[in-house]
Design a protein around this nucleic acid. Structure first.
Lengths: 218, 218
DNA sequence: AGCTCATGTGAAGAGCATTTACATGACCGG
DNA sequence: CCGGTCATGTAAATGCTCTTCACATGAGCT
């Protein structure tokens, strides 16, 4: 077993063997603990047990690490949305609602990723990979919106993009303002999930979608 | 005229005379230019023409300056919303829409304030003044929502707080994701203002509010 | 004029970002 | 098994920022 690289334990040799992943994990911990601004390259290196210069073999600078965290976040986010949407099963309305919950769940359970993705000020320009992952994640939302609209009466269907942007903005607004238990909290009369569900329901009703809630169940 | 303090020009003496204000202005410039994270205490001091230690006579540390910027931002924000709401004239629906535009206008014209208020991660706890200013600004939105709801048929009025939170989340989501020309831009099929107006209209329609748009005019 | 205290300075310690020259050893061909 | 090469890691150095402390200045009061 010549497992000098990966493996269950920590390799202690001169070479770390898995530094990039270790740096990502360290960054996530630090961002979760002290915010995207408080995370430092040097501390991530320390956490990974390497010298402060080592990270530069994997990332041009601190921003590039942050950008990579954001990109991976978008990929995970996309996967979570895809999973929740589940191709619109059992019906688009139900799946859409489930996707909204998944949105908030991601923001709550992965605050570090979410922060890097939307609040760290990482510019999408100049990071084609990041832009692509971001677009792909939004694409899931857009596709779901399209399918949902297709179930509506044909005479007055809204523009897909507009509706997708509305849903995204509402979801992000709720996640950003009320979605995390960390700090800027404000006492709410209802949970973020309930808030998003009610908001989406009212919005859909405004579009002329008949209330599809089964009277029973939340 | 013993004007050794304020005045039109720059006082050059040992004492600055107006450092606190100068630091705020420097902070706003720097935040607008390089983001809330990129702003440094030392650079603000340099910009104000004082030594790096001088700011500590006015703020305990960098975070307290940021917090003060956020507080002033909320106060200006509140004033802008109050002005736009104009006590619901000529009618709550019109005034409400105007307030939405003012929300986005503030986010666009004062990105530094907006950033400090919502994206810099300044904790509301431990800053009672900040919390109070924040609450006051939200109070304007809440009050306007209440007045708007009062014009609705009495049988199915929504909870004021829920609706206010929905409107806030939608506004913040749009402002945060699409409202600034700075970076994370994404090509939109419509302006942020149109997006917010349409979203609010649909939401209100979902609440059962008859479409009050005058068919003409945007 | 003289006092006093808020306000500003200079210097210093500690931490971080980043670069550069150098060290190590993983992997590959022989 | 041997030696070379190159990705990966280190040490040291520079320059910046944050923050504190002892000290300087002068604005405003008496």
């Amino acid at each position: 077993m010549s497992w000098s690289k990966k493996g269950g334990g920590e390799s202690r040799g001169y070479h770390h063997g898995n530094l990039k992943e270790a740096l990502i994990r360290a960054a996530l911990d630090l961002i979760a603990k002290k915010g995207a601004a408080g995370f430092t390259f040097a501390e991530a290196a320390r956490w990974a047990g390497v010298s402060p210069a080592a990270p530069y073999r994997h990332y041009r600078d601190r921003d590039e690490l942050l950008s990579d965290v954001a990109r991976r976040g978008f990929d995970l986010f996309q996967a979570a949305l895809v999973r929740a949407w589940d191709d619109g099963r059992p019906d688009p309305a139900t799946a859409f609602d489930r996707m909204g919950k998944a949105y908030l769940e991601f923001a709550r359970n992965e605050p570090a990723y979410y922060s890097a993705m939307f609040e760290a000020g990482v510019p999408l320009d100049g990071h084609p990979d990041l832009r692509q992952s971001s677009d792909a994640a939004f694409g899931v939302l857009r596709g779901a919106t399209e399918k949902l609209i297709a179930t509506m009466p044909a005479q007055n269907r809204p523009p897909v993009m507009m509706m997708a942007l509305h849903i995204w903005a509402l979801s992000h607004g709720i996640a950003s303002l009320f979605g995390r238990g960390d700090s800027a909290r404000r006492p709410l009369p209802m949970s973020a999930e309930e808030l998003l569900e009610a908001g989406t329901l009212l919005y859909l009703r405004g579009l002329g979608v008949p209330d599809s809630s089964k009277t029973t169940r939340s």
